[in-house]
């Protein structure tokens, strides 16, 4: 059998460290060799424990998880870091990836996922929990970029009436809105479409089949 995977846990909550230790206790191919309550301690203990993997919290005193990971990547490129954190925001995920983490899982992970992540990272792969990849992908994708998608339903409704050469007052009466509100919507719509006058608006609505929407 291969040598067990040696793990160092870094977290500023002793209780959490104890929990993880207990959880991984019965897994024979994983061995917890040490713990640290902040980044500075991690750096001090790396030489003594020479772990294969560091489970790294992000929010720690002294040296935070991002800085510590950067340091490890630079000085001990063979040691792999898995972020184990509560944070799931785009900003921190990207910062940790840039710092060189090989895994990213959230603290409410399951036992199975934790083990899966440790196995994958130890074999040289990168493991990002689904929540993390999905949230980044979702965040970077935007809705369609056609000009009509810039307009709200109300604005489209008002443009249609403007095109029928109704005045703002008439439109306000028709829709049960105040005249000021109608003028505001109208102004906003023209601005979004970068149109200067009603003629251009008429042309736009014909070009884009606005009357059929």
């Amino acid at each position: 059998m291969n040598a067990p995977i040696k793990i160092l846990i870094a977290d500023d909550h002793q209780m959490f460290i104890d929990g993880i230790k207990a959880l991984l206790n019965e897994i024979t191919h994983i061995q917890i060799v040490g713990q640290a309550i902040n980044g500075k301690e991690v750096i001090e203990k790396l030489n003594n424990y020479s772990p294969d993997i560091v489970l790294m919290d992000i929010g720690m005193a002294e040296l935070n998880g991002i800085e510590t990971t950067e340091w490890i990547t630079k000085n001990y490129p063979k040691i792999k870091v898995i972020a184990l954190t509560m944070y799931d925001d785009h900003n921190r995920i990207m910062k940790m990836l840039k710092a060189g983490v090989k895994g990213y899982i959230l603290k409410n992970t399951s036992k199975n996922e934790l083990i899966e992540a440790i196995n994958a990272v130890s074999s040289g792969e990168t493991y990002l929990t689904k929540q993390v990849t999905a949230s980044i992908i979702k965040e970077s994708s935007k809705p369609n970029h056609n000009p009509i998608s810039l307009l709200t339903k109300r604005e489209i409704q008002i443009i249609k009436l403007v095109v029928k050469s109704m005045t703002s007052k008439e439109i306000a009466d028709e829709l049960g809105l105040s005249e000021l509100t109608v003028t505001t919507h109208r102004k906003n719509a023209m601005q979004k479409l970068e149109l200067k006058n009603v003629a251009a608006l008429v042309k736009f609505s014909i070009d884009n089949n606005l009357s059929e929407l």
Binding site: H13, M15, F16, D18, G19, I20, M86, K107, N108, K111
Partner: peptide, 9 residues
């Protein structure tokens, strides 16, 4: 947050 994670573990 941390207590919750610990509880789950």
């Amino acid at each position: 947050g941390t207590y919750l994670s610990t509880l789950k573990i």
